[in-house]
Structures are given as structure tokens and as C-alpha cells.
Amino acid sequence: MTREEIVELADAVAAHGGIASGIGTTRYGAQLSVEAGDREAAVERASAVFADAAAKAGLPSWPIADVGVTGEEDDLGFLA
């Protein structure tokens, strides 16, 4: 992935407090924030936001390999 491609992805996820990675690699990724009622809804929403951001950045439409979720209860030291 080129610097320009990842900068475009970073711009596309910025509205969700996002950051992007992948410069000089054969993959790309992002970390972003969404609000949802539960973990499953968060995964759905974040996956949709990510796919839309990748499309806006002109990146290949590859399958999402991994999704991690951290919620407010995790910040407080509770485990779901």
C-alpha cells in the first residue's frame, strides 16, 4: 500500500476518530470508534464503516480478517 492510499483511508475514517495503517505493506487496516448497543452491533457497524472508508479511499475490496471490540465496561476493568 502506498502512503497516498493509506492517507486517503485515514481521511475516510477520521470522522469516526479513526487511524489507518499499512504504508509499505500488502495490507491495510484501521482503528475507529462507533457507538452500538452491544458487541455484535458494534462489529457490524464498524465493519460497514471500514468497508465504506476503504471504498472511498479506492482500496481493494478485501475480506476483513480481524475485528476487535473494546467497550466502556472494558475501560472500567469488567469483562463481558
Rank of each mutant, 00 (worst) to 15 (best):
G37W: 13
A80V: 05
I6A: 00
G71Q: 13
V43A: 10
D38I: 08
E35A: 13
S61T: 15
S47M: 02
W62M: 06
I19N: 09
I23Y: 00
G37M: 11
I23A: 01
G77Q: 04
F78N: 13
L59Q: 06
L59T: 05
L32A: 08
A20G: 03
R39N: 04
A57E: 13
G17C: 00
R39Q: 03
A42C: 03
G29N: 01
A46C: 06
F78T: 08
V67H: 03
G77A: 04
G71R: 12
L79A: 14
G58N: 00
A46Y: 13
T70I: 10
A41V: 09
G68F: 12
T26N: 15
G18W: 07
D75Y: 14
T2G: 09
E4W: 00
P63G: 15
A55E: 14
W62N: 05
A10E: 09
S21Q: 00
A20I: 02
G77S: 01
L76N: 05
L79Y: 07
K56T: 04
V69G: 05
A10T: 00
E72K: 03
I19G: 14
A55W: 01
A20N: 04
A15Q: 12
S47T: 01
V43P: 03
G58C: 01
A41D: 11
D52Y: 12
G77L: 07
E5D: 10
L32E: 07
D11M: 01
G22R: 03
G77E: 07
A30V: 10
A30H: 05
E40S: 06
D38G: 09
V69W: 09
G24P: 01
L9R: 04
Y28I: 08
E73R: 14
I19Y: 11
L9F: 02
T70L: 14
I6D: 00
A48R: 14
A41K: 13
A54R: 12
V43K: 08
D74S: 11
E44W: 12
F50A: 13
P63F: 10
E40T: 13
E40M: 04
F78G: 05
P63L: 15
R45T: 15
E35T: 15
R27V: 11
R39M: 02
A14Q: 02
G18F: 06
Y28E: 10
E35N: 12
A42I: 09
E35V: 14
K56V: 01
A65H: 06
V67T: 06
A30N: 09
D38P: 03
T25G: 11
G77R: 07
F50R: 14
A12F: 07
A57Q: 14
S47W: 09
K56N: 09
